[in-house]
């Protein structure tokens, strides 16, 4: 089921999303992104030796997770721009919460802007940004 542009209103909230960032998934991502040579993405102990709190999720994986949340909500909506700020580390094997809310609706271009955040278990915003999404219908 895909959303239609006419059904979207300013202030609409995307369903909260709890991404799977178990270490094995982060390792899989790091392999596909050719980042697996960096132990800070694949090994908790080695990451701690580098002074990190544990293996961390690559910024572009957090960005990809937020994009997937937008796709999961919008269906056929096309992300034209996604702009993310990586404010703090996201640690593998934790349970962040991703949220999105529609903050601009432009009938002229059939695009919307979604404010995006990822929060850690301490409710700190680790990633924030916006996505511009275009709809054909």
């Amino acid at each position: 089921m895909s959303l239609r542009f006419q059904d979207i209103e300013l202030g609409d909230e995307l369903p909260e999303h709890r991404p799977d960032i178990r270490l094995e998934i982060v390792r899989e991502f790091a392999g596909a992104a050719r980042m697996d040579a960096a132990a800070r993405f694949t090994d908790h102990d080695k990451a701690r030796e580098e002074g990190l709190p544990g293996a961390i999720v690559p910024g572009i994986m957090s960005q990809g997770i937020l994009a997937a949340m937008v796709h999961g909500w919008s269906g056929d909506g096309i992300i034209e721009r996604i702009d993310t700020v990586f404010r703090a580390m996201v640690v593998a094997d934790t349970e962040p919460i991703c949220r999105g809310v529609v903050t601009d609706v432009d009938p002229g271009t059939r695009t919307i802007v979604v404010d995006l955040t990822m929060q850690n278990e301490a409710h700190e915003t680790t990633v924030l940004g916006t996505a511009t999404v275009r709809f054909s219908v």
């Binding site: 999303h17 392999g31 997770i65 949340m69 999961g72």
Partner: peptide
């Protein structure tokens, strides 16, 4: 293609176009 599919799966993409 294999990298694209793994990338999509790890990020939680569910739309079949990905």
């Amino acid at each position: 293609q294999d990298e694209a599919l793994t990338f999509a799966r790890a990020c939680g993409e569910t739309h079949p176009r990905f």
